[in-house]
Design a protein around this nucleic acid. Structure first.
Lengths: 223, 223
DNA sequence: TCGAACCTTGACGGATCCTTGACGCCGCTT
DNA sequence: AAGCGGCGTCAAGGATCCGTCAAGGTTCGA
């Protein structure tokens, strides 16, 4: 179920939004001022936030900035002001969209669908993976129980693969993440380093079970 | 360098946007109609698209849908219409933002920064479908629970079909999306690859239930 | 200065995939 | 009944991609 946090100080607006969203099967949480909104977002991380700018106490822009310190949750700003500078300030503070009152409920819902459509970016940093007889710890850059020495480039490649377990990673994506823009064509790098990783980690490097290759597509880490 | 593709049929609007964006160090590509925009986006994938809705020929909404078949690039729609239904249609077609003319250049730039801020998702669009005993995951290019290996061309065809569930996709459209312009006559490709897909995914390849042929028309994915 | 570890680059055989043509089946038309 | 076009199937070739190896080139510390 998709959780939406609505922040507004006007009870009737809050209620109207809540009814409309719940009718569309969203789970709704509400807050009437900025600090309570931050508490609520921290306690139960929502999938999206609808935020009125004209809040008592903490300014709406400050709420966005505070949220953005630790969360990438999509934020749609509601505001009575239609001035361009207000929009610029809110968007640059970290808002994803800006809707001017009065607005159409259908438009707001469409914009909500639009920001929710983007891939949820709650991917954790680090993690660990089991390959053959080895357990690799990405955060600590260590391999247990038998210590195996990996080069920096090998670590970067392994990190990208392990952070998308079971999913295919395009050769282009891998080259982009590890070597940066401008190296998308050097697929031979990947061949060399994947061979090295398999030789060091796989039980049978000739028949890998975890660091798989998808011909023509890319590579995949299979847990 | 951040690449932005601007699509507008009015030369002066095109020029004004280009000058403003280039002054902010963006790399700008332009197109004056929908089909050229799609060609340009396929040849040099941009990091964001600014799209005028009132295009000659191909409708702006259709441009978004065609883009969304294979790309998740952020799209900001420009439009002279401020009606709520127009916004809803464009946003649900896959647009990320909707700006009504006349607009402030600073606001547009702020919205551009907002859509570019989200993690670079040059990954293909996701989605999943059930075919026979298999569940195909387009985002991860995986088939569960029994792993099935599909070739790159098979994935591209399946992506186009699954993105239009229940709807007919003409052979021409399929050839255009998968092989690009200039291959519209090679319908035998489709026969070969559809046969391969059915052999790998359908329970009874001789009597397909999900990857259907509409004689004389094209193909259809039936969920 | 030297050496070691690492990164780049090229070449080659083998595996995989794409393309192409041929053949037979089926439904429709003549 | 014969002809025709669209479709499914199959196999062979050519093109492309991948695994492997080895030889420089670079960086960094001893």
């Amino acid at each position: 179920m998709t959780r939406v946090l609505i922040v507004d100080d006007e009870p009737q607006m809050l209620r109207a939004l809540q009814i409309n969203l719940e009718a569309r099967q969203y789970t709704v949480a509400t807050a009437q001022d900025g600090s309570r909104a931050l508490d609520e977002a921290a306690a139960f991380p929502p999938d999206a936030v609808i935020l009125d700018l004209g809040l008592p106490g903490l300014d709406g822009t400050e709420v966005i900035r505070a949220l953005r310190v630790w969360s990438a949750v999509p934020v749609i700003v509601l505001s009575g002001r239609s001035g361009a500078t207000d929009k610029v300030i809110a968007l640059d503070a970290g808002a994803d969209d800006y809707v001017t009152k009065p607005f159409s409920m259908n438009e707001l819902l469409a914009r909500l669908r639009a920001v929710l459509r983007r891939p949820a970016s709650d991917e954790p940093i680090g993690g660990s993976a089991v390959i053959g007889d080895h357990t690799v710890d990405l955060a600590g850059c260590t391999v247990r129980p038998v210590p195996v020495r990996l080069t920096p480039t090998e670590w970067r490649i392994l990190t990208v693969l392990v952070q998308h377990p079971g999913r295919l990673v395009t050769g282009r994506q891998l080259l982009l993440d590890v070597w940066g823009p401008g190296h998308e064509r050097k697929t031979n790098y990947l061949r060399v380093y994947l061979a090295g990783l398999r030789r060091k980690l796989e039980r049978d490097p000739a028949h890998p079970r975890h660091l798989l290759t998808e011909p023509g597509m890319g590579y995949r880490f299979e847990p």
